[in-house]
Design a protein around this nucleic acid. Sequence first.
RNA 1: GCCGGGGUGGCGAAAUUGGUAGACGCAAGGGACUUAAAAUCCCUUGGGGGGCAACCCCCGUGCAGGUUCGAGUCCUGCCCUCGGCACCA
Length: 801
Amino acid sequence: MSSVPPYDPQLVEAKWQARWARAHSNEPELDRPARPFYNLMMFPYPSAEGLHVGNMFAFTGADIHGRFQRLQGYDVFEPIGFDAFGIHSENYALSVGTHPAKLIPKNIETFRRQLRRFGGMFDWRHELSTTDPKYYKWTQWIFLQLFNAGLAFRKKAAVNWCPKDMSVVANEQVINGYCERHPDTKVEQRFLEQWFFNITRYAERLLNNLDRLDWSDSTRTLQRNWIGRSEGAELIFETPAGTKIPVFTTRPDTVFGATYLVLAPEHPLVDQLTAEEQRSKVNAYRREVQGKDIVSRKVGDKAKTGAFLGSYARNPATDEAIPIWIADYVLMEYGTGAIMAVPAHDRRDFEFATQFRLPIREVVRTDEPLPSVTEDGVLVNSGKFDGMPCRQAQRDIVAWLKDKRLATPQVQYRLHDWCISRQRYWGPPIPIIYCARCGPVGVPERDLPVELPFIEDFRPNASGVSPLARHKEWYFVKCPQCGAQGSRETDVSDTFLDSAWYFLRYPSTEFDDRPWDPKRTQTWLPVTSYIGGNEHAVLHLLYSRFVTMVLHELGKVPFDEPFPKLRAHGLIIKDGAKMSKSRGNVVIPDAYIQKWGADTVRLYLMFLGPFQEGGDFRDTSIIGVRRFLDKVWTTAHEAAGQEAGPLPAAVERKLHETIKKVTTDTERLDYNTAISAMMEYVNLVREQGAGSRAAVEPLLLMVAPYAPHLAEELWAVLGHDRSIFQATWPRYDANLAAGADVEVVVQVNGKVRGRVTVNRGASEAQVVELALRDESVRKFVDGKPVRKTIYVQDRLLNLVV
RNA sequence: GCCGGGGUGGCGAAAUUGGUAGACGCAAGGGACUUAAAAUCCCUUGGGGGGCAACCCCCGUGCAGGUUCGAGUCCUGCCCUCGGCACCA
């Protein structure tokens, strides 16, 4: 054998990365692409620790997809950027005592280096950072588009206040009542005036469009649950004094069983409905509730508490007067903030009624004990509706009450409007000026961006007022409408607004006078393929869809869904747990890349488990994929010195099988099985000593998306002078892949007893005849008559005796 | 509680969706080469049993049933686990 040079990944990778950069080979023609393919991955937050293997796992999977599509002949645009604003970055800056404006550029520098080193096919001309004024100018512009359309408004509302962050956080950032970033800190409820985006107006469309998106089911389900659509009716309960109390219910069929009403303690009608003799009790209860944090209020299995208001309302179905209570198990944020309590058919109402000895009336007959919540039953104690099945009664009772103007069919959503105000420093200032005469006025477009001023002391405080208010020269400003003295909004916007439109910006980063160029947008968007983690299933993906929907309505973009095709990758865990700084199990890939090379690490990450499920990072098995690359290396070098010759039949067949499998698996992101198919193939080639050019070239093309540097190098070794990524993905011949003959399994009574080799497409009779000649089969048939034969063409024969 | 994943060798995992369970890889054991080591190559490797032997038999995909010629895959009822939602009316 000719001498094969050693495989030195450091050398090979440096060489090809330099060439790609020099040749601009990762920078597609954006204006006139023949076949545009926008390959998007979720941009990272540039943490101080650097890119970890979880990021690299996600980016490698997406990069393989991009490189594969490039080999299919697409002009692949694969941009990258940095989601660098936000409380995350700011808290870290606070903890190390460095200003984020100094820290972030350093972190980004590290990320850039790492992203280049692992060999991503990134178009660096279009890098962006959300902290760049040239970027957030347009984040502010988007805010103003919503503001002008009446979709951004100020509202005094109960909001989630994190005492650690000393800021309001969105509903989506509260987990079980605890702050997403501070799992030991309970979120408090504060009543503050905040900016909201009216996402609930789009709830129905956000929900319905899910059906036509090519997304994984798991992600769609998460969004569906988050939006939380409930169908039901609003029913009116009226007091003798004529006050109407609307309640929302999903079970109007149970209205005859509503034996009392419960309002949220904050309900605006409480004062008016409270009888004098009950006032002190009621007020005491309301104070008690106010003192509770959200967790102890919202967790369900506590004993019920409440207070009777001393007044009554009329049940619209029975005309009975039923008592009105307040209780903290009723939430002001949902529905009308008031419920009709049907203790016989609702677990919570049942507990409450039991506790306070309120009447329980069964109105749905089932075979379950009370409280029974099923809708499979028939009505009882319900006047003329007795005997009617629940589902029919739901419609008929609403219709009946509707005629009396006491009911309206209604749909409720769990989704709340998106609170975007943050009382923090590190974000884009909300571009609003307050004027005593004109009210809140949008900053005119010509004055954008409202730059975030540098302030030395950017610490938040518990006052609910942002640090920016301390910068007086920045704070005081003339009203753009009337010229009077005004002041700026000092809150910054939520980071999720930054990331809700970055994909629109990428193709147009060189334009300073527009957020995105209409022609570029027309060409490249919506995003062809989006790959990212399921941790963003509700936040980022929902917000991006909302923003896109609004922009579409305003005529700013020609589509209403940004990501028609989305795939979620799994999570890389370490020692059985999610990687996190607090657990101290974050793995940074640099040392592994140093030791093994980027190609090996890429391949390892893709081989350790299914891409869409993730897996455990254990460095012990890296050697396996490295051995595979070594074999490819050796085989290709040996082939370079050989005359081209025909492939042995077995190798040819395996080659076509392999191309078929690798093609479909790579397409479907089943990278782990694609890699094992390539391993099988190279093993066979070596076993058969068949390492010719004809055997190796297609292999290199298949390896190229996975281990791009190695593939380039070996492609050159085989004498090609153009990049392998300008070549075409190999084709397979279905007939060759299938082979001429097949092994058919022979079972007797469902147990495998033998195998026969026959021509593909052999008839049942032929196979039966052959099978009955097999000694072991005969033994089990044992002379008994064959009662039945089941034949699966080219696969299996089962003889039943 | 509700909604979704998932449970397969010592380990990571495959299995064309009802048709040979454990491909591929790691680890382990044995061997070849070597003064030696590394690297490389070959063999063995789910459990149990039988045979001088090429080999053969039984059991085996969380548990208990069921459907089927045939079940890791479908159905019923459980157990465990991961993720999401949760006093949402």
